[in-house]
């Protein structure tokens, strides 16, 4: 099997990291690309476009999880520097909203719950229908009605 064109793969990986990690500075992108290249070179036989994107995704997921557990980068790692991130109050509000959203979703009828979950992570009704073996129409209705009910539920909890 021929060796992958590593220069081309590096360009592709850089593009993928930039797109998935929007907002990262160039130094951060370089670091992540370097980590990704190491993973790609461990499995040269598997390298294709899909694998490159998956590698970019896994590098970014690992980085975010690591940072959440133990901040190593940015102002969060330097408590004496002015913190421009979300304030503790903002974080509490975000956590409350997330919790309320979860409760409202759990209250939703079963027929809507999975469709709404897929919609909230970025899938449109057509994809929902494919993934859940449902008709497009039932998924469209579940999204429309479900979002209305979700907003109403959040309002009733005072978080929307």
């Amino acid at each position: 099997m021929s060796e992958p064109d590593w220069s081309q793969r590096r360009d592709q990986l850089t593009r993928a990291v930039r797109r998935l990690g929007s907002g990262y500075d160039e130094a951060m992108v370089d670091d992540l690309v370097q980590q990704g290249m190491i993973r790609l070179m461990r499995k040269p036989e598997a390298v294709n476009a899909s694998y490159v994107w998956r590698t970019a995704w896994s590098v970014i997921c690992d980085f975010r999880r690591r940072r959440r557990r133990r901040p190593e980068h940015g102002d969060a790692a330097l408590p004496f520097v002015k913190d421009e991130g979300p304030s503790p109050a903002d974080t509490v509000v975000a956590t409350d909203l997330r919790r309320a959203l979860r409760d409202c979703l759990e209250q939703a009828p079963e027929s809507r719950r999975d469709v709404l979950t897929l919609y909230l992570v970025g899938h449109g009704p057509t994809e929902c229908a494919d993934m859940l073996n449902r008709t497009l129409k039932s998924c469209e209705n579940a999204v429309y009605r479900g979002l209305d009910a979700l907003r109403e539920c959040l309002r009733s909890k005072g978080v929307a």
Partner: peptide, 10 residues
């Protein structure tokens, strides 16, 4: 709504 749902806080 999507942003709140994908918020990893907590």
């Amino acid at each position: 709504l999507k942003q709140a749902f994908r918020d990893p806080a907590g």
